[in-house]
Design a protein around this nucleic acid. Structure first.
Lengths: 244, 244
DNA sequence: TAGTGGTCTAGACCACTTA
DNA sequence: AAGTGGTCTAGACCACTAG
């Protein structure tokens, strides 16, 4: 019989096992960059056959959460936060190089989110969320304005932090301050016409085209953790993505 | 010892097995929509263990070539060309659903590509390329105009095909006519202002914002196989992508 | 050399589909 | 009831990595 079985026992063993491993990673028990117990050790710990362990590990490898290395071990993939910006925000310069934008938190409050955001974050009716506004300077004359909503229950700690104490990269900062790890995201890009306020903020003429990027970022367990809306001038904008 | 072993014997058994199964499908020996031999039968035929058969079948299932049905059997999937489109062209409607655009080849010729295209396709100086122009109707009043360059050496067969005989989906068509398989792609999205010609083609006013999507599609060996430039009106455009 | 993941075996029982 | 795929066992040997 397997030990430490919290997950749903109706599920296949290998799935319960991978769920539990994922939980350990999400909880920070198995840290990114470190090796998890060897396969033979996992069979011992959980009292299952090697084939079952391998199938469980396989699913997490396929999800890009673990990484096997023949003869060395199986490792938790490091969320490469130096690159996390480029993983999710694929702006590139005409040369193809990736800029390192500076950012600044403009405001930080507790707000009732718009209905669309509330649904995206799976919040209850009337539930307030941590709301940040942020400015990202790509180049001296090119900037993005961001609105960010975060579930209060997980991110309340941010409310006690002064805006100028926020780190440049938010995802590592979320992990550090709130223990929340971003694992994936879905972005939707649309083009708008700048209204007067937006034009003023972005330093362009009203009516000029604006790029709007909506991002919903998820944790390892696919819980929505962040809703972000970024706007910037469309002129000179480049968005690059590799498809497989 | 396994029977009928034509594939490279240095490869793992399960890979040799899946290669051979794929060969039978490609040869029309196992037809789309029909069931392949059962797993126990495959163990008997090839003289391998059930786990090895399952692993071989798994790889073809993952590739979308086979489809399991619990209690019924494993079937050769009908080529579902609708999916290959959505792998690479991620336009979505406001509802989030994915449109099925119709397309039409407008021209087909042999041309000297612009320098940028030449480099992207790794062609020699002065080397001509197959050049297609294509119209894609997303909705009655929304269309994209595409320019496509293809290396002559691999795609010359297209020059003998009448424009109205091209399939709606190009990638399966490339495979069928030229034996060229697209494995991945890189897209870069930018915003332009419509010049007079483009505005006329797209049915918008000059100066209105236009989305330009440049795609370089690669084969399984990372050889650049296609350069494509698509333009459409920015208004109402949505581009969605899942990031990991 | 010891430990790891990669492959493979030869079964077993279960859940599902079809007749 | 018979046949199928889904899960799982309890080993084995090999290839690779590190000390």
């Amino acid at each position: 019989m397997p030990a430490r079985m919290r997950p749903d026992e109706r599920l296949p063993l290998y799935q319960q096992l991978s769920d539990e491993m994922l939980a350990r990673i999400a909880a920070g028990e198995w840290l990114p960059g470190t090796a998890i117990p060897s396969e033979t050790e996992l069979t011992r710990i959980h009292g299952v056959a090697i084939g079952t362990v391998r199938k469980a590990v396989d699913t997490l490898v396929k999800q890009g959460i673990l990484e096997r290395s023949h003869g060395r071990g199986t490792f938790v993939r490091r969320p490469q936060f130096s690159e996390s910006f480029f993983r999710f925000f694929r702006q590139v310069n005409p040369s193809g190089s990736q800029p390192v934008p500076q950012s600044r938190i403009l405001s930080r409050s507790l707000e009732l989110p718009p209905e669309g955001v509330r649904q995206a974050l799976a919040l209850e009716q009337g539930e307030a969320a941590v709301y940040l506004t942020r400015e990202r300077i790509i180049q001296p004359d090119r900037l993005f304005r961001e609105q960010i909503w975060l579930p209060r229950a997980r991110f309340f700690a941010l409310l006690d932090i002064e805006p100028n104490m926020f780190a440049n990269m938010l995802y590592p900062f979320y992990e550090e301050q709130c223990g929340q790890l971003i694992a994936s995201a879905r972005e939707t890009l649309t083009i708008e016409s700048a209204d007067v306020d937006t034009a003023d903020i972005l330093g362009i003429a009203p009516g000029q085209p604006v790029v709007a990027i909506e991002r919903i970022a998820l944790g390892y367990d696919s819980t929505p953790l962040e809703y972000r809306l970024s706007r910037g001038a469309a002129e000179g904008f480049r968005y690059q993505i590799d498809l497989r």
